[in-house]
Design a protein around this nucleic acid. Structure first.
Lengths: 149, 149
DNA sequence: ATATATTCAGATGCAAAGGTCTGATAATAT
DNA sequence: ATATTATCAGACCTTTGCATCTGAATATAT
């Protein structure tokens, strides 16, 4: 089918976006997130654990536990989340799948795709959780989509 | 992992590019293609059959048989091949995976991603086999990559 | 201390994509 | 006609991504 991000990565992005719209100090538990965003809970658990390992989130067990951002939201770009879950292949490997493809040995789409890829990268690297959380708080529609109050 | 095209789609693009650099009337047999491009032969067979069903290629059994383009190369855009193999989800579904996402009910990345998606579409729709075959014949490097003479 | 809420870790199951195999069918060459 | 070359069609196997289950570990509240 070929979507741009893996499903797991979509879940991760959705979940972090959801958390970003809440007070940053609070832990958000996984039941709430999976419930609101309709993501299978155990799988979401595993996914957020990956982000904990990558130091993007931190977690706390027990009552009042859950996950929260581990750094200020303006230091977390969407790119960091994508990188943590899907890796960087999208931004480095040949779009036509030729194993040996580089600027000195380009495939027929190399140049065009480089440009495109850079734009996608710039967009993801430039957009922080903080940017998005501002957009969310100023848009009723977005709060609805994320099933926030 | 998440590459932009499925592996099968990469194979299809590679194979059509390979064929495009040969005299258009000739059938190219699948052994030659899979051999030169290092693609598993039976899988390539299935893949090219899909393109036959979509009228992008035509095929002929028996000696001197194989596959060839079914129309003039300037009427086949890369987009047609991608569409035939991977479908159009990449160009229509929400980048964050929200089921209900549209311009009237956008996700936090909707606008940016629309722009990006359109550019990718324009690139794929605007680039024809004929364009690429010209590039190939003027570049020794490309002929090498496609393992052509 | 005990009960409870929650993540953590690893094993397992399931479905789809990727890849293989076999026999049938059709076209060409002799 | 026959042998040969090649695609066609469908069944099958393998790997990987997606998802579940279970029990353990740990923090909090009482």
């Amino acid at each position: 089918m070929a979507l741009i991000f893996s499903r797991q990565c979509e879940y991760a992005l959705q979940a972090v976006l959801y958390m970003s719209a809440k007070p940053q100090k609070e832990y958000t538990n996984i039941i709430e997130i999976s419930d609101r965003l309709d993501i299978p809970m155990p799988f979401l658990g595993k996914t957020l654990q990956l982000l904990v390992q990558k130091k993007i989130l931190s977690s706390q067990k027990g009552p009042k536990g859950g996950f929260k951002l581990s750094k200020p939201p303006d230091e977390i770009a969407l790119y960091h989340i994508v990188e943590a879950i899907d890796g960087t292949d999208l931004f480095s490997s040949c779009v036509l799948g030729f194993p040996k493809c580089s600027s000195t040995n380009p495939c027929p789409m190399h140049e065009e795709w480089s440009v495109m890829r850079d734009r996608v990268y710039q967009m993801l690297a430039g957009k922080t959780i903080s940017d998005i959380s501002k957009e969310i708080s100023s848009s009723k529609q977005l709060r609805m989509k994320l099933r926030l109050a």
